[in-house]
């Protein structure tokens, strides 16, 4: 579904991503792991078109999307839930969700999706008319995910969904994510918390200082203590 072919990303004179290739097949959950500053967010930003690609190509559903702007990529079915959630704190939960569907024109479809997701995430229905800023961290993360879903994506990319959340909430979030896969969604999840991510992922890539260090099944990575130690570090147990 998504094919990233040896792309590089520069921030001014600094090269954040060096010739990285990865693929995401339909229906998969793929984890993109790696320490802070590895270039994971840069890679996502390049895939969604917020930063230009210096080299390489990005294809989505067999079509090169290098030259499309962010908005068009969202229309085609890519969606990013940004790191740090970036909820519009000055808008209500409802308004946040409506804005999530900004790229769509099918009114009925939007209303139907809204109902479905509010059933899946009842807490959002409870908070429906509150401002986004008044939500707790976990609630904001759910809102952020649902807001991305409202665009009706084919590929959902989550940037650090567990960041800054309590372990119990992290569990909940990941359960919800794997629930989304059961609904037929393809997911690329960027995580520092490898342990959690690997519980649900089918395959994983490890990025370190802008280079791809490993690619394989989540199973391989989970069972190989050496690999884990080498790339993820011992700190995360």
């Amino acid at each position: 579904m998504l094919e990233v072919d040896s792309i590089s990303v520069n921030y001014g004179p600094v090269r954040a991503v060096h010739s990285v290739s990865l693929t995401v097949e339909e229906g998969e959950i793929v984890a993109l792991l790696g320490p802070n500053g590895a270039g994971k967010t840069s890679l996502l930003s390049a895939i969604i078109g917020l930063v230009p690609v210096a080299e390489g190509t990005i294809s989505f559903q067999g079509q090169n999307i290098n030259r499309l702007d962010t908005e068009s990529r969202v229309e085609r079915g890519l969606s990013v839930t940004p790191e740090g959630r970036h909820i519009f704190a000055n808008l209500t939960v409802e308004e946040n969700l409506i804005l999530g569907a900004a790229s769509r024109r099918d009114k009925d479809g939007i209303a139907r999706d809204l109902e479905t997701y509010l059933d899946m995430f009842p807490i959002l229905r409870e908070r429906y008319t509150q401002s986004g800023g008044s939500l707790s961290g976990g609630e904001q993360q759910m809102l952020a995910v649902v807001r991305s879903l409202m665009s009706g994506p084919k590929l959902l990319m989550l940037d650090e969904p567990s960041l800054g959340l309590a372990p119990r909430i992290v569990d909940q979030i990941f359960k919800l994510i794997s629930g989304l896969r059961d609904r037929g969604l393809t997911i690329l999840v960027v995580e520092q918390n490898a342990q959690e991510a690997l519980k649900f992922a089918d395959r994983a890539y490890i990025l370190s200082t802008g280079n791809l260090e490993f690619s394989g099944t989540a199973e391989e990575l989970r069972t190989s203590a050496d690999l884990m130690k080498a790339y993820i570090g011992e700190g995360v147990a």
Binding site: E71, V74, E75, P82, F88, A89, L91, E95
Partner: peptide
């Protein structure tokens, strides 16, 4: 809504597929 949201965070508005 997008205008109000953009006052807060324009990049994320673009991520919603709303044309800047």
């Amino acid at each position: 809504l997008a205008m109000r949201a953009a006052a807060y965070d324009f990049t994320t508005v673009r991520l919603m597929g709303m044309r800047a």
